Amino acid sequence: MKLHAFTALTLMISLAACGSKNESGQADATNTAAPAANQSNAAAGGMGDMAMSPTAKMAKGTGKVTAVDKSAGTITLDHDPIAEAKWPAMTMAFKAEPSLIESVKVGDEVNFDIKLDGNAGEVVAIAKK
């Protein structure tokens, strides 16, 4: 029974540390919680104060919007090769924040930034050409 109490206490302390901030109010650099949702700065093409997982990296791309699915939260792009991801040109759907989805329509030629985490990519900024 004591082992369960110790495990629960350890879990509570670990979870409390995930959201900790330093004295200046900034999140600690050791925080490895899931990336924060992109803020309004993304609609203007910036990345805001978005946190990234340790395995995530950024990439830039260009392409054409072929579909917008607000209910699924995705933008489908027919994009040129993306060197940082080692991806050839292809058409694929990317998750995106609602403000980014609202900012484009089918047929728009765009420049975009994606956050890569493994084989998955999420549009974090997009701007019409």
Rank of each mutant, 00 (worst) to 15 (best):
M1Q: 12
L3E: 14
H4D: 14
A5G: 00
F6H: 12
A8K: 09
L9M: 11
L11H: 07
M12E: 10
L15C: 11
C18W: 14
G19P: 09
K21M: 10
N22Q: 12
E23I: 06
E23M: 11
E23Q: 13
S24Q: 10
G25L: 06
G25S: 01
Q26M: 08
D28I: 13
T30R: 15
N31M: 06
N31E: 08
T32I: 14
T32V: 14
A33S: 15
P35N: 08
P35D: 09
N38G: 15
S40D: 08
A51F: 13
M52S: 14
M52L: 14
S53R: 06
P54R: 08
P54G: 09
T55Q: 13
T55C: 03
A56C: 07
K57N: 10
K57S: 15
K57R: 12
K57F: 14
M58S: 08
A59Q: 03
G61P: 01
T62I: 11
G63V: 01
T66F: 04
T66D: 10
A67Y: 05
A67S: 11
D69M: 11
D69Q: 09
K70T: 15
K70M: 14
K70F: 13
A72C: 05
G73A: 11
G73F: 01
I75K: 03
T76C: 06
T76F: 02
L77G: 04
H79S: 04
D80M: 14
D80Q: 14
D80P: 00
D80T: 05
D80G: 12
P81A: 09
P81H: 05
P81N: 01
I82Y: 04
I82C: 06
I82E: 12
A83G: 04
W87V: 02
W87L: 15
A89Q: 01
A89V: 00
A89Y: 02
M92L: 10
F94Y: 14
A96W: 03
A96H: 07
E102Q: 10
S103R: 03
V104C: 02
V104F: 00
K105A: 10
K105R: 07
V106M: 05
V106L: 00
G107F: 02
G107S: 09
V110D: 05
V110F: 07
V110K: 04
D113H: 07
D113F: 05
D113E: 10
I114S: 09
I114T: 08
K115W: 00
D117P: 06
G118L: 06
N119D: 15
N119H: 01
N119A: 13
A120N: 11
G121D: 05
G121F: 02
G121V: 03
E122C: 00
A125V: 05
I126R: 01
A127D: 09
A127F: 02
A127P: 03
K128L: 03
K128Y: 01
K129I: 03
